[in-house]
């Protein structure tokens, strides 16, 4: 199935100047958002990004940034009710993940 969610919302940013082309982002991304071209990472389609944060956390030069989070309505609701960041509360018998 097509794995595209809402367009134009992802917070993923790539600072090409900092990129050393190591390819870690392409390796860890579960949606093949990155492509390495001429020793630089390139974002192929940012709308495929689910903001899991794997790329940014594994980028050794901090060329990538993304506001990492879980795309889970229950987590957003819980966060809103508790006044915290979205937290799925997995482990409290919730249904998510």
């Amino acid at each position: 199935m097509t794995m595209k969610y809402l367009p134009g919302v992802s917070t993923l940013k790539l600072e090409a100047a900092k990129c050393i082309g190591c390819g870690m982002c392409a390796k860890v991304c579960p949606h093949a958002v990155f492509w390495i071209e001429a020793r630089k990472a390139v974002i192929t389609d940012v709308d495929l990004c689910m903001e899991c944060g794997a790329c940014a956390g594994n980028c050794p030069t901090e060329a990538l940034s993304v506001k990492k989070g879980v795309g889970c309505a229950q987590a957003v609701r819980m966060g809103f009710l508790r006044g915290t960041e979205p937290d799925c509360g997995c482990g409290d018998g919730s249904s998510c993940c």
Binding site: M3, M50, G69, G71, C72, V76, C88, C96, C97
Partner: peptide
């Protein structure tokens, strides 16, 4: 959305 493998927090 929480069970899916492709939804982002910004989108949700």
């Amino acid at each position: 959305t929480g069970a899916s493998t492709y939804t982002s927090l910004s989108g949700v």
